[in-house]
Amino acid sequence: MQKPKLYVTREIFEDILKKLEQYYEIEVWDKYYPPPYEVLLEKAKQADALLTMLTDRIDANLLQQAKKLRIVAQMAVGFDNIDINTATKLGVYVTNTPGVLTEAVAELTWALILAVARRIVEADHFVRWGEWSRTKTGWHPLMMLGAELKGKVLGIIGLGRIGSRVAEIAVKGFGMKVIYYDVVRREDLEKQLGIEYRDLDTLLQEADIVSIHVPLTKETYHMINEEKLRKMKKGAILINTARGKVVDTEALIKALREGWIAGAGLDVFEEEPLPPHHPLTAFKNVVLVPHIGSATYETRHAMAELVAENLIAFYEGRVPPTLVNKDVVKVRPPGFK
């Protein structure tokens, strides 16, 4: 049997590609930037399988024109770039890579919390750009004052895998009080970690640090808007390692400009990549990183391995281990036969 064609939208680890080559005829987009939609559409028309990233738009138009396509294996937890309903109707399997990102994203969340609270990036610039030298003093009682975390209140929005790990680190590592909001109450974790449930408005009013860990859905789009930002404490910090569109960027800029909150740490943005002169880049009290939540070797390789597991399982006629659209099995069995 001729190998099915797999189009890979970005360069990934060589050992993973070699593993997949046993099952698929592979073509890889070799540029650093993602393939333009027009290129992706043409490649999808010829492909039996796609290995995609969160930046690839897999919409109804593409799915309807890709007559041979049977599986979209996404190298990400999120899948808001894929039209799941259309894929299911057409019998196209969609998989993602949950679970393997938890530690990396939780650790980056804490890196951002500490960077903003202790003004790490601002202090680095203070030294690097000669401002410290110009003060003519090596130490001053009021120099670069930040905030301690012990005893402070961390408010977590979304207590899934990542949110619960962030909560655990807060309680066990920093001695913080943790409150959370989620559509599903987690009484097991409340008992295990000593954390407390709050409705969203109350959480925003009580928390010294608010950390967002929800997926992007119609319900969470601009979940943190001007109304919600006005409810936060004046000295509070907002952290977002989830999805950029969960936060209304214009409202956040206004909040920072007018001093409603003390600062922010952002790994994700409504517009990616963020333009170099974007208003957010002007704030010293905002730490910006380029969507690197999962950017450790260990995690990215584990993500690629899980993508390969999904693709190999499908090739062998098995339901992929992390199938997103589970109803698709009613439309078409897994495999290329």
Rank of each mutant, 00 (worst) to 15 (best):
K3P: 08
K5I: 14
K5S: 09
L6H: 11
L6R: 07
Y7F: 15
E11W: 09
E11V: 15
I12Q: 00
E14G: 05
L17V: 14
Q22I: 14
E27Q: 15
V28M: 07
Y37A: 03
E38T: 15
E42C: 09
K45S: 08
K45A: 06
A47R: 13
D59A: 08
A60I: 15
L63I: 03
A66V: 06
Q74S: 15
G78I: 14
F79R: 07
F79H: 14
F79K: 05
N85H: 12
V92G: 01
V92E: 12
V94M: 05
V94R: 08
N96Y: 13
N96P: 08
T97I: 13
V100Q: 06
A104Y: 13
A104G: 10
L108I: 06
W110D: 00
I113E: 06
I113H: 04
A115W: 03
R118Y: 03
E122W: 05
E122S: 07
D124T: 05
H125M: 01
V127G: 00
W129A: 01
G130K: 00
E131H: 06
S133V: 03
S133D: 04
T135I: 00
T135Y: 04
T135R: 04
W139P: 04
H140T: 02
L142V: 05
M143D: 01
M143F: 14
A147Q: 15
A147H: 12
E148D: 11
E148K: 15
L149E: 09
G151M: 05
K152Q: 09
L154W: 12
G163T: 08
G163Q: 10
G163C: 11
S164R: 11
R165G: 02
R165P: 06
A170M: 07
G175N: 01
Y180E: 00
Y181K: 01
D182W: 09
D182H: 02
V183K: 15
R185C: 03
R185K: 12
R186M: 07
E190F: 04
K191Q: 10
Q192C: 05
I195M: 01
E196P: 02
E196Y: 13
Y197I: 01
D201I: 10
D201N: 14
L203S: 07
L204D: 01
D208V: 04
V210H: 12
I212K: 08
I212N: 13
K218T: 14
E219D: 10
T220C: 11
M223G: 11
E227N: 07
K233S: 03
A236N: 01
I237A: 02
N240R: 07
N240Y: 11
A242G: 12
V246Y: 05
E250W: 14
K254C: 00
R257C: 10
R257F: 13
E258S: 08
G259M: 03
A264R: 07
G265N: 09
D267Y: 15
E271Q: 09
E272F: 10
L274T: 03
P275D: 05
H278T: 00
P279E: 12
T281H: 05
F283E: 11
V287E: 03
V287H: 12
V287L: 07
L288G: 04
Y297K: 12
E298W: 15
T299W: 09
T299V: 06
R300T: 08
I312H: 03
I312M: 07
I312G: 00
A313L: 04
A313P: 00
F314M: 04
E316Y: 10
E316A: 02
V319F: 06
P320K: 06
P321Y: 12
L323P: 00
V328F: 01
K337F: 15
